[in-house]
């Protein structure tokens, strides 16, 4: 199996690693870098639990090869709260009870972060649309949407 030396930043830290050609970003993050906030729910790009930001765009880490992030910038849920300061989205998810079992939460937060970065003032339908790739079986989505709405308002 061919190996690649890749250079990237993960949550603000520069890294250089060797990876196999067939290693997915999801397995790389979880099994080699110990980034456990990235969850594995289906491994086929359907549930969104492994959503991370790659160069600012939300991607399913199970559908991206680790080799592809060479030269790129990856942000996971761990990277949202740097220096002990929660991202406004994390705070509003806590305040609005947008969390139940918490397994989909990291991916949802990343999708919401990507939305607010490209559209700081989304309406409710735009929020729903941004979260449609993140399956949640507990919350019924209502309080997640409330939380994203509240974070957007706070960003004003």
């Amino acid at each position: 199996m061919k190996h690649h030396t890749i250079s990237f930043t993960l949550n603000g830290t520069h890294e250089i690693r060797d990876v196999r050609s067939n290693l997915t970003l999801l397995r790389f993050l979880r099994e080699q870098l110990g980034v456990m906030g990235v969850k594995s729910g289906c491994d086929t790009g359907e549930c969104g639990a492994c959503t991370v930001l790659l160069n600012g765009e939300p991607v399913n880490a199970c559908l991206v090869l680790a080799a592809e992030i060479d030269g790129g910038k990856v942000i996971t849920v761990e990277g949202l709260s740097m220096d002990d300061q929660l991202d406004p989205l994390q705070q509003t998810f806590i305040d609005h009870n947008g969390i139940q079992c918490g397994f989909c939460t990291p991916g949802v937060l990343i999708s919401a972060k990507a939305l607010l970065t490209r559209n700081p003032h989304p309406d409710r339908d735009e929020i729903k649309d941004a979260l449609r790739g993140n399956l949640c079986r507990c919350t019924g989505y209502v309080r997640m949407i409330d939380a994203v709405e509240a974070a957007a308002k706070e960003g004003n």
Binding site: M36, G37, V38, K39, T76, V77, E78, L80, S81, L86, Q90, Q91, F93, I94, D95, N97, I99, G102, F103, T105, P106, L109
Partner: peptide, 16 residues
């Protein structure tokens, strides 16, 4: 009252 597990879950720290 806010969930006592929310912080752990919002930061990705909660272990599964």
């Amino acid at each position: 009252v806010k969930r006592i597990d929310a912080f752990e879950k919002a930061t990705g720290a909660a272990p599964f």
